[in-house]
Simulated scan of single mutants.
Amino acid sequence: MEMRMDPPTDYYDEQLKTVDENIVASIATRQHLSHGKPGFPKVAYLERWAQQYEIPVSILHQTFSTLFRWHVVRERVQPDQFERFVPIMAAEPHGNLLALVPYLRQYNNCSVVSVQLESPQLGDGPVHVDLDIAGYECMRHAGGGSRAYWHQEFVVTPVIPDDEATSLAMIVHIESNNRMRGPRVGEPAPKPIPPTTIRFHRSSKRD
Rank of each mutant, 00 (worst) to 15 (best):
M5L: 13
D10Y: 06
V19T: 15
V19H: 15
D20N: 09
I23H: 12
V24S: 15
I27M: 12
Q31G: 06
Q31P: 06
H32E: 15
H32M: 10
H32Y: 14
L33Q: 13
S34M: 10
H35E: 09
H35Y: 07
F40C: 05
A44V: 04
Y45K: 12
L46D: 07
E47L: 06
W49F: 14
A50M: 04
Q51M: 14
Y53S: 13
E54C: 15
P56L: 09
V57P: 00
V57K: 02
I59T: 12
H61E: 12
H61L: 11
T63R: 02
F64D: 03
S65G: 14
T66M: 10
T66K: 08
F68H: 07
W70Q: 06
V73F: 07
R74W: 05
R74I: 06
R74Y: 07
R76T: 10
P79C: 05
Q81V: 14
R84Q: 11
V86E: 04
P87I: 04
I88S: 02
I88N: 00
M89H: 13
A90H: 04
A91W: 10
A91S: 06
P93A: 09
H94I: 08
G95K: 04
N96L: 12
N96P: 02
V101H: 00
P102V: 02
Y103L: 12
Q106V: 03
Q106R: 12
Y107F: 07
N108V: 14
N108F: 05
N109F: 06
V113Q: 00
V113L: 06
Q116P: 08
E118D: 08
E118G: 05
P120V: 09
Q121D: 13
L122V: 01
P126K: 06
P126D: 08
P126W: 05
P126S: 15
L131H: 03
L131R: 00
L131T: 00
D132M: 11
I133P: 01
A134F: 09
A134I: 09
G135R: 07
G135F: 04
E137F: 05
C138S: 11
R140T: 03
A142H: 15
G145K: 05
G145N: 08
S146R: 11
A148N: 13
A148K: 10
Y149M: 11
W150Y: 05
W150H: 02
W150I: 01
Q152W: 00
E153W: 03
E153T: 08
V155E: 01
V155Y: 00
P158M: 10
A165R: 01
T166P: 04
T166S: 06
S167C: 13
I174T: 02
E175N: 07
M180A: 03
G182R: 11
G182D: 14
P183H: 07
R184S: 11
G186W: 09
G186L: 10
P188L: 04
P190W: 04
P190H: 06
P192Q: 10
I193T: 01
P195I: 03
R199V: 08
F200V: 02
F200R: 04
R202Q: 09
S203K: 14
S203E: 13
S203R: 11
K205I: 14
R206M: 12
